[in-house]
Every structure is written in structure tokens, then in C-alpha cells.
Amino acid sequence: MDQNKLTEFLGRFTSDLAATNAAGSIVIGHRLGLYRSLAEGPATPEEFAQRTGCDPRYLAEWLRGQAAGGYVGYDPGTGRFSLTEEQAFCLAAPDGPNLPAAFLLALGMLRAEPRITEDFRTGAGVGWHEHHEDVFVGCDAFFRPAYVAQLVTSWIPALEGVEAKLAAGARVADVGCGLGSSSALIAQTYPRSTVLGSDYHAESIALASERAAQAGLSDRLGFEVSGADTFTGADYDLVTMFDCLHDMGDPLGAARRVREALAADGTWLLVEPFAFDRVEENLTPVGRLYYSASTFLCVPNALSQPGGYALGAQAGEARMRELVTEAGFTRFRRAAETPFNLVYEVRP
């Protein structure tokens, strides 16, 4: 046995276990607004307790753990904890990436561990709707900042002729819309266009409709409870799917429905997790993140539905091209990418 390799592996384990244990504390900070409060300025635990109304002993332990993980700073001379501008942007800013929401999603999905463990033996599935509500809320809260940052500034402009159509007034179907953040963003940015969001999860659609009404968008943004192969309407100028095709039990059926629903010169904006085609190329931190989520969310959901597919979150571009071609599309290209997503333009 190589002692250096053993020590290296144990170091990796310690880091992983510490990060796993810290997830609960990060979610507590998110729920209680602790990061937002600390962004107001440095504080000792006692000062922080006065600011937040929380117990100082709990806060002391929380702050020390956050400092040990590099999520907050600590000044031993003053005993105060603080956030740098960069930490505050990632953890507390309203227009930031809202990283704590990712931990909310992670803890939500891990609640299903006993069920997933049993399904490893049986091959059964767990539907998206069967997970804890933190999965739905956390997923929306974590993905929304990326859509705000990329969708109308980068992804849509990368599509041939689509931005002009939306500005002039287009028909849009946002399939697998979840809580409707992507649908609302399109409706807000292109007020002459109409958007129909659809998702099979009734609770998500109810919340999406409520948010649309609160935002004053109900006249041009509607929602329906339907699967990706049954959403209503025709002659859409744009159909969008964000990080959801790989979750479906019958992605081919969904792709065929999109082909049927598009106008002759319409476009399908398909956004999927970043993945290479070869397994060994996905053995990265991002790949690990997606494979883990896929084990608890994507593959179980697909196995819970008819269709016979379980693409998983790391399906890769070649598999996507093969699937949409089988569905009857003739044009497929990678229009944009980020470290976390691949953005495809698919056309009849």
C-alpha cells in the first residue's frame, strides 16, 4: 500500500465529509437570512445576535464553521466575522448566483435516500413530484440566476432570427417550466410575445401561475399542467426546454411533440447540462456534481415514467443529436455554452 496515496485519499474524504456536514449550516444561513445580515458589515457573534435576533451560542458555532470552510472571513484581532464582496455576491446578493439554494436542493433530494436505496435493488423510479418541496423551490432558486444572466443576453441572441421574432411578437412554449422563472423572464423581456409554460407537476404550475399574476404578466403568460408530449398549442415560433429533457422517461416522444408543435420556421431552444460524450471526460468536479444529482433526481424520475429511457444528466451532445434527428429534426447545432450548460438550436 502506498502511504502517500492513502493519505491523499483520506484528505479527500475529510474534505468531502466536511462539505457534506456543512450543507445543513449553509441552508440554515439561507433560511434565516444570515448571509444577508453579515453582508451589512463585520460582527462578533454577540453583535451578530443583536442584528439577527438569533441565539449567540448557535451563531458562534455557525460563524466559526463558515469561516473554516472559507465561506466567511475571520479577524482574530477583533473577533469579528465578515463577508468579502465576492462572498456576499455569491451568498447574499439578490442578483447574485444564490449558491445556498443549491444546498437547499441537495438536502431536499437526499431526503429520498431510503427510497432511492431500495430502488437500486428493484429498478423502480421516483417521480419528481414525490420529492420534498425543497427540491422544487431549491431547483428554481438555484437555476433562476443563470437564466437571468444568460437567457436573454446570450442564449436567445445566439439563435438564428429568434430574437427579432420575439421582439416583434412570437408564440412561445416553455416545456418543463417548473415554477416558471424562465417563462416569466421571456414574457417580461419580450412584451409583444405570448408564452405558455407547461409542466406535469401541478404544485409547481400553481406557484408559477401565482407568480405571473403578482408580476402582472397573466395577460400574455399562461401555464398548464401537462407532460412534455402532451402540451397544447401549435405553430409556435419558439419552444424552450431548460435542463429537463434528460429527466424524461420518453424524451423521444417529447421531441416528436415539439417537432409537431413548431411552426415550419420555428426553433427549439434546448438547454442541457454540460457533458462530454465520453465517460472519462466527465470525471470532473462538474461531472461529479451532475452524476450525483442524476442518481437521486434525473434517472429515478425517468424510470418512474413510461418510455424506456433514462438519459441522465450527462447524456452528452452526440446522444442529443441522435435523439432529435430520430424525432424528425434536420438541423442541430451547439449555439452557446457555459461551464454548466450546453445550449442547442434545433430546427425542422
Score class of each variant (00 low, 15 high):
Met109Gly: 11
Met109Asn: 11
Met109Cys: 12
Met109Thr: 14
Met109Leu: 15
Arg111Pro: 11
Ala112Trp: 11
Glu113Ala: 15
Glu113Ile: 13
Arg115Ile: 13
Arg115Trp: 14
Ile116Met: 12
Ile116Leu: 12
Glu118Pro: 10
Glu118Ile: 12
Asp119Gln: 13
Asp119Leu: 11
Phe120Leu: 13
Phe120Pro: 06
Phe120Thr: 10
Phe120Ser: 09
Phe120Ala: 10
Arg121Ile: 15
Thr122Gln: 06
Thr122Pro: 08
Thr122Asp: 05
Gly123His: 03
Gly123Ile: 04
Gly123Thr: 03
Gly123Met: 03
Ala124Phe: 09
Gly125Leu: 04
Gly125Glu: 06
Gly125Cys: 05
Val126Met: 14
Val126Asp: 08
Val126Ile: 14
Gly127Ile: 06
Gly127Arg: 14
Gly127Thr: 08
Trp128Phe: 15
His129Trp: 13
His129Glu: 15
His129Pro: 09
Glu130Ala: 13
His131Trp: 13
His132Lys: 13
His132Arg: 15
His132Leu: 15
His132Val: 15
Glu133Arg: 14
Asp134Met: 09
Asp134Cys: 08
Asp134Glu: 11
Asp134Ala: 13
Val135Lys: 07
Val135His: 08
Val135Glu: 07
Val137Asn: 04
Cys139Ile: 11
Cys139Asn: 12
Cys139Arg: 09
Ala141Gly: 01
Phe142Pro: 01
Pro145Gly: 00
Ala146Ile: 05
Ala146Met: 03
Tyr147Asn: 00
Tyr147Pro: 01
Val148Thr: 01
Gln150Val: 06
Leu151Tyr: 01
Leu151Lys: 02
Leu151Asn: 02
Val152His: 05
Val152Pro: 01
Thr153Ser: 12
Thr153Gln: 11
Thr153Trp: 10
Ser154Thr: 13
Ser154Lys: 15
Trp155Thr: 03
Ile156Met: 05
Ile156Asn: 00
Ile156Phe: 02
Pro157Gln: 05
Pro157Gly: 06
Ala158Cys: 02
Ala158Asn: 02
Leu159Glu: 05
Leu159Ser: 00
Glu160Pro: 06
Glu160Arg: 08
Gly161Asp: 12
Gly161Arg: 09
Gly161Ala: 10
Val162Tyr: 05
Val162Ser: 05
Val162Trp: 06
Val162Thr: 07
Val162His: 07
Val162Pro: 03
Glu163His: 04
Ala164Val: 09
Ala164Ile: 07
Ala164Cys: 07
Lys165Glu: 06
Leu166Ala: 04
Leu166Lys: 06
Leu166Arg: 05
Ala167His: 01
Ala168Phe: 03
Gly169Pro: 04
Gly169Tyr: 04
Ala170Trp: 04
Ala170Asn: 05
Arg171His: 10
Arg171Glu: 11
Val172Tyr: 00
